[in-house]
Computed example of a mutant assay.
Amino acid sequence: MSVVSTIDIKSVATRTITREAEAVASLLPMVNADFERAVQAIVETKGRLVVSGIGKSAIIAQKIVATLNSTGTPAIFLHAADAIHGDLGMIQQEDVVLIISKSGESPEIKVLVPLIRNFGNTLIAMVGNIEAYLARQADIILNTTVSQEACPNNLAPTSSTTAQLVMGDALAVVLMELKGFGSDDFARFHPGGTLGKKLYLHVSDLYVNNECPKVLSTASLKQVIVEISKKRLGATAVVDTNDQLLGVITDGDLRRMLEKSITLQLDEIKAAEIMTKHPKTIHADALAVEALDLLRQYDITQLVVTTGSTYLGFIHLHDLVREGLI
């Protein structure tokens, strides 16, 4: 018999998620005056927020530090064990210190706390037991007490670490909004990867690498087909002599034209007679992700790039795929 068949997998997973969701919900009353004091202390400090912990709490501390740094609040991680073995010098006079611990009674924490108190730094305790040593010694308490771990033995840090993580996110988002940290700031801090590209990559960065197919409204059908084939974007713009956009002709427009019964000879057909007027366009200064949204919205593969009504070129779905936005 398979080992996995001895338990109800869905039931156990559902129970775990339910318990952790309850732990998160129980944090709502903990967003209190102490929470506001913690935010104020971090905002007003001229130093950084030093976040420390031991065991699984140290891992949560590292994630909180990463979130704070990426959202405009300078923070560093200090492992509690390393702190008492030489790394305590990382803490500067103006820093605020946040120590994360479920029990608040870990031996390393008990050694570290008096040292920080001697330094005179503001000490914030994110703790799961407000009667613990850490809580009693702290200037400010962030209560992350949970009634039960999701672990069936009520031992492995699960609900408690989830509560710590969520409390840290709440701090980071409040600080982010207080500082007016916007999408432009976010883009500066996240220049790499897909996230960065969504925030800073513009249409103007992409369309210039493509050919710029265009014909006059008086162009013959043959000229239209040659231009579309030569520039290999599946479409051409139709413009006047001043490059003002009049319409667009795609491969699909050509196929639909040939499917219709037409009275004109093919060599008599002009671009103006088969073009789609008022095509979907996007400004060169728009974000590339906005172009992606339009392509998805209208289920098309290219957009005409303009500035005002002046034709500049095309941005194609392939450009966005190549940049990893899809």
Score class of each variant (00 low, 15 high):
Lys63Met: 11
Gly193Ile: 09
Ser101Lys: 03
Ser220Cys: 04
Met30Gly: 11
Gly234His: 01
Lys280Asn: 15
Lys198Trp: 01
Asn153Gln: 09
Leu303Asp: 06
Ala58Cys: 05
Lys197Ser: 08
Ala150Cys: 02
Glu177Tyr: 10
Ile116Pro: 01
Phe314Ala: 05
Ser220His: 08
Thr241Tyr: 13
Ile315Gln: 00
Glu20Leu: 03
Glu149Asn: 01
Ile9Tyr: 12
Lys222Phe: 11
Ile76Thr: 09
Ser101Arg: 03
Gly128Ile: 00
Gln164Asn: 11
Leu221Lys: 05
Ser5Leu: 13
Leu325Met: 07
Val208Glu: 11
Ile54Glu: 06
Gly193Met: 10
Phe77Cys: 04
Ser5His: 12
Ile269Met: 05
Asp34Arg: 08
Thr145Phe: 00
Arg322Trp: 04
Leu134Asn: 07
His316Arg: 05
Gly182Cys: 13
Ser103Arg: 03
Phe35Lys: 05
Thr16Phe: 01
Leu155Gln: 03
Ala172Leu: 11
Ala291Lys: 08
Asn210Met: 02
Gln148Ser: 00
Asn118Ala: 14
Asp185Glu: 14
Thr6Gly: 13
Glu108Val: 02
Asn121Pro: 05
Glu177Asn: 14
Asp251Lys: 07
Val43Tyr: 12
Thr144Tyr: 01
Leu292Thr: 04
Thr241Trp: 11
Leu134Asp: 02
Ser147Arg: 08
Ile282Cys: 01
Gly324Glu: 02
Phe186Ser: 11
Gly234Leu: 08
Lys230Trp: 07
Val65Tyr: 00
Ser229Arg: 04
Leu258Ser: 11
Ala135Lys: 00
Arg255Cys: 08
Asn69Asp: 10
Pro152Ser: 00
Asp285Tyr: 14
Cys151Val: 01
Ser309Thr: 15
Lys231Gly: 02
Val51Met: 08
Asn121Arg: 05
Thr144Ala: 12
Lys270Arg: 14
Met275Ala: 06
Asp34Trp: 00
Gln223Thr: 02
Ala284Cys: 13
Gln137Tyr: 10
Leu112Pro: 06
Pro279His: 12
Leu49Cys: 10
Ile7Cys: 07
Ser204Cys: 11
Pro191Gly: 10
Val97Thr: 03
Val203Cys: 07
Ile262Met: 13
Thr250Lys: 05
Lys56Pro: 06
Ala138Leu: 07
Ser70His: 08
Leu317Cys: 10
Leu98Asp: 07
Leu171Trp: 07
Asp253Ala: 01
Ser147Glu: 09
Pro213Cys: 09
Glu177Phe: 10
Ile99Glu: 08
Ile326Thr: 13
Thr6Pro: 05
Arg296Thr: 14
Glu105Ser: 10
Gly128Cys: 01
Leu246Ala: 12
Thr236Ala: 05
Glu94Val: 07
Leu123Gly: 03
Val24Thr: 09
Ile60Lys: 00
Asp253Glu: 04
Ala41Gly: 05
Asp299Lys: 15
Ile60Pro: 01
